[in-house]
């Protein structure tokens, strides 16, 4: 199976005056298509920073990243935006929904951005929300939904158009354990359909369905745990 993400010798350094902070110190990681990888580590280990680099939300200080064989560091700003739109899906810790848009509109937005006709975008969004159990909450605003429901909308938005890779940054961090379990179940279901998932979490119990866990410490990969042979 081919690698969908290849990160080579990734470093990330922040400078603030004379103070230099090395957040990532030469990370190498390859992820296969269809794999579900969890990135774990303590707070400040650099796991979210690493996710931002490979998900095109940020650029590393040094290193190379290939996604689907393409050197993403060669992309212009516009190309990065278009690539994120067409190839990647994101689930953020705080749901990241547009608070003025209803659940279905939140899901529709990136679909419309791709140039899909409105009615078609609506159908796709409704289908996506129904699949994750929010078929009866289509027209609710985020403020009218619980945290778990908002995160489900966020997941529906991310996977509505079958992205190549789904990135999730601490998707259960703001949720209670029951809701978190249900969210992880949603990820499991999505993964079973062949979706590549890269998830940052600091809670081991939510990695039980993952194929692999990568442990970061002080900006470096310190160990890997393979749960399922891929």
């Amino acid at each position: 199976m081919k690698y969908i993400i290849e990160a080579k010798n990734i470093t990330k350094t922040y400078k603030s005056g004379d103070v230099v902070t090395h957040v990532l110190r030469g990370l190498d990681l390859s992820i296969k298509e269809g794999e579900w990888v969890a990135i774990m580590g303590k707070s400040g280990a650099g796991k979210s920073t690493f996710l931002y680099q490979i998900s095109l939300l940020d650029e590393p200080t040094t290193g190379n990243i290939f996604v689907e064989g393409r050197d993403i560091l060669e992309f212009s700003d516009t190309e990065r935006t278009d690539f994120r739109l067409t190839e990647l899906g994101y689930v953020f810790q705080d749901y990241a929904l547009v608070r003025e848009l209803s659940a279905i509109e939140n899901v529709m937005i990136p679909i419309l951005m791709k140039g899909t006709p409105r009615e078609e975008a609506r159908e796709i969004s409704e289908e996506s929300l129904t699949r994750i159990g929010l078929g009866d909450r289509l027209n609710n605003l985020p403020s009218q939904l619980s945290g778990g429901e908002q995160q489900r909308v966020s997941i529906a938005r991310a996977v509505a158009q079958n992205p190549k890779i789904l990135f999730a940054d601490e998707p259960t961090a703001n949720l209670d354990s029951i809701t978190s379990d249900s969210i992880v179940d949603v990820f499991k279901e999505i993964h079973q359909s062949g979706q590549t998932i890269v998830m940052v979490t600091h809670e081991k119990e939510y990695t039980k369905y993952c194929d692999r866990i990568v442990y970061l410490e002080d900006g470096k990969i310190v160990s890997e745990e393979i749960l399922k042979k891929y």
């Binding site: 939300l57 516009t78 935006t81 278009d82 690539f83 994120r84 739109l85 067409t86 990647l88 899906g89 994101y90 953020f92 990241a96 547009v98 608070r99 937005i109 990136p110 951005m113 938005r157 991310a158």
Partner: peptide, 15 residues
């Protein structure tokens, strides 16, 4: 923050 997220999920700056 919302603008950042919109850009993050691929919404073009022009939009």
């Amino acid at each position: 923050k919302q603008i950042g997220i919109l850009k993050g999920i691929g919404i073009r700056r022009n939009a």
